[in-house]
Structure formats: C-alpha cells, structure tokens
Amino acid sequence: MLLIRCPYCEEDRPEIEFSYGGEAHIARPLNPDELSDEQWAEYLFIRSNRRGLHHERWLHAHGCARFFNALRDTVSDKFEMTYKMGEPRAQVKK
C-alpha cells in the first residue's frame, strides 16, 4: 500500500484514505464547440501513461476531501512530491 502525503493535511497517510484521479494538468477545453474530433479524442482518451515520472491527481477522500497533484515514479511507485491544486506543474529533473 502506498503512503501518500496530503499537502493540505501535511501528513503521510495510507492509500486507502485516497482515491486516484487520473493524469493531472489536463484542462477541460474552454471552447468545446470549436474543437475538432481529434482534439476531443486527445482531451477525452489520450493519456501520457508515462513509464517513469507521472503527474497525477489524488483525492483525500477519507480525510480533508480535497484534490491535489502528485509526481510519482510509475516504475518504483515512489512519490517524488505532492502539491496543492493551482500550484505550477512539478518540474521533472532530468
């Protein structure tokens, strides 16, 4: 089970308190009626599915009930960092 640090509660808590919210930083289009089919497919279905450092959302469902973002290595499952909604996308160190 993953140990996840909620940036709002500022505590490491077990995974069962959280639910996964998919890839992070995918913004809902502001101009839906102008989008082409390709752009809709990209928004709805295409994901980076990164093998390595992955930006993703988590919800502290059984805690503060807030969404936050995380950067996690999908090979080791280790969290590099978690950060609050609205904070800039975490930089991936090369």
Binding site: M1, I16, E23, E56, R72, T74, D77
Partner: peptide
C-alpha cells in the same frame, strides 16, 4: 489497483 503503474506489484488491501 487504482493508479497507473509498471511495477508489476500491487497493494495488499
């Protein structure tokens, strides 16, 4: 398990 992973392992719960 609920999250994207290539680790070939999951959680006990």
């Amino acid at each position: 398990d609920q999250y994207v992973s290539y680790s070939q392992r999951g959680a006990l719960h």
